[in-house]
């Protein structure tokens, strides 16, 4: 009897369902491997990798300076693998009357500078902010990318993405941010009772919808982020073949079906440059072989 190799994967709540599906499909093909997947948040996964408690850390954000310093102090060589991309969508209650925002407006709303919907062309009423807790990679990504400083202390910190969506549906002044996979269904329609906000970074251009795939790929829609899997050292053996499976046409199809995007060359290239402050760790590329 052949022995079963166990792989431990831990981290991002954004990635946990997707990686679970991918692992299920991979294990169906290869019965000699058993992959266990846990959530907890990107920070939890990275901490586990640095403490040697997991083989793979799922993370929706890059390593921070502190984490990189800790890794080198402990003699770890962290390697990144970008296996998918996620569009972050901003959802509002339709009663707010707002359907597009600039990135700057969004940042000022979440910093607590803009307090009333009227200031951004909506129905008058005090804005009610929803977001994730600080152990979430989405919290960190959104703060770095959009807010650029601390969140308003009035931000209601919810336990999970689903709770944000529920609250925005019930709150006529509510705004929240979640992964696209949580609000779009397999057939491309979105959930009832919420509105996806069109966003633009450059105020002179028209705002882009997160449902417009071309806008996501071109970067016209501003909130697209890579989803990482970190390992200590280059992945070998079963971990490597699992990563290759994720990059295979079958894996990419699963990624699309779950509401995420398979990575594309321009995005990979953008995150491959070591000069970028957010990605000082080496990024692996399993896709070029196919293209």
């Amino acid at each position: 009897m052949r022995s079963v190799e166990r792989i431990k994967v831990k981290g991002s709540d954004t990635e946990v369902n997707l990686v679970f599906r991918l692992a299920e499909a991979y294990m169906a093909e290869d019965s000699t491997v058993s992959i266990s997947i846990a959530g907890g948040g990107s920070g939890v996964g990275i901490a586990a990798l640095l403490n040697g408690k997991t083989d793979v850390a799922n993370s929706s954000r890059a390593l921070t300076e502190k984490e990189m310093a800790m890794a080198s102090r402990r003699g770890l060589h962290v390697v990144a693998h970008i296996f998918a991309a996620d569009a972050l969508v901003v959802v509002v209650n339709p009663a707010t009357g707002v359907d597009s925002l600039t990135l700057e407006q969004l940042g000022r709303i979440y910093a607590g500078d803009i307090l009333d919907w009227q200031e951004v062309g909506g129905r008058p009423g005090r804005i009610s902010l929803y977001g994730r807790q600080s152990n979430s990679g989405t919290f960190v990504y959104f703060r770095e990318r959009v807010v650029g400083r601390d969140f308003s202390p009035a931000l209601k910190q919810m336990n999970g993405t689903a709770q944000i969506v529920e609250s925005v549906m019930r709150d006529p002044y509510g705004i929240g941010y979640v992964g696209l996979g949580y609000v779009s269904k397999a057939d491309g329609s979105i959930r009832q009772g919420i509105r996806l906000v069109r966003l633009k970074e450059d105020p002179t251009r028209p705002a882009a919808s997160p449902l417009d795939e071309a806008a996501l790929r071109s970067g016209h829609y501003p909130l697209v982020r890579p989803l990482y899997q970190f390992t200590n050292g280059y992945p070998e053996g079963k971990i490597k073949s699992f990563f290759q499976f994720e990059a295979s046409p079958k894996g990419q199809q699963l990624i699309l079906e779950n509401g995420y995007l398979p990575p594309w060359p321009d995005m990979l290239a953008a995150y491959d440059t070591p000069s970028e402050s957010f990605s000082k760790v080496e990024t692996l590329n399993y896709y070029t072989e196919r293209q």
Binding site: Q133, S152, P153, A154, Q157, N159
Partner: peptide, 20 residues
């Protein structure tokens, strides 16, 4: 309370404020 009170860290102004 973690689930039901909204967990905002701002100083609450009354019973209708979100509290942590």
């Amino acid at each position: 309370v973690l689930m039901a009170t909204g967990n905002a860290t701002a100083m609450p102004s009354g019973f209708f404020s979100s509290v942590r």
